[in-house]
Amino acid sequence: MDTVLRKLACFVCLGFLLAACTTTSTKTAEQANISWSSGLNKRIVLIEPDITLGSLTAGGAFDPRADWTRAAEQLIDQETAILLKEKNIDFAKADNLQNPRSIQVAKLHSAVGRSILLHLYGAGGQLPNKGKALDWSLGPGANTIRTDYNADYGLFLFVQDSYTTAGRAFMMVGAAILGANLQGGTQIAFTSLVDLKTGDIVWFNRLVSTAGDLRTPDPAKKVVRNLYEELPL
């Protein structure tokens, strides 16, 4: 069990540093020239978003709720679609990738997302060769997603849960959506916009908020707007 506790301790350290080192949340790549394929409607595909909603039991355990989660997924889809439509962009959803290469690209994104979080948001130490620049890519493999979904850009929506931080902090996107009461919890969501032609991450956003009572009206709208308000589109 010592190893267990030792590892937990590392994660605790990581979690607090993540919280402590927050300055600006949004990062835009220096070469984020948004361009669209001609002859097609502008389209963005939301790729297998990772969302879990639930509540905290009295004993402090996380209780996942399928109904809340499904509802949140739909609301996020809807709201993202509306937001994109305002910018004249079509919304597509990649629910269940089938192409093995696309799956590898999506898994690669998880690793890239963690690197961005670690190196651009403080905890992992800045990489001297990158500094504060958002300079990461998924590589040309992203094109398989582009052709499968006819979309020039992809959105990844990632929830980094806080099981690893001390106490009862659980991060879920839009727990606010259904007014779930997250006592003492912390919400962290991050999302990235990927140019599917090159695989370059052109925009990255991390949302951190300390939850109080989250029973506010239209919370889904707020979360999505908050997340995507600075999309360079």
Partner: peptide
């Protein structure tokens, strides 16, 4: 989540949270 944990738990290349980097 678990992917990140796995990477960290592996302890192979990233130990403590507070790692710094120097230019080469």
């Amino acid at each position: 989540m678990i992917k990140r944990l796995s990477a960290l738990a592996l302890g192979l290349f990233m130990l403590t949270a507070c790692v710094a980097y120097q230019a080469v």
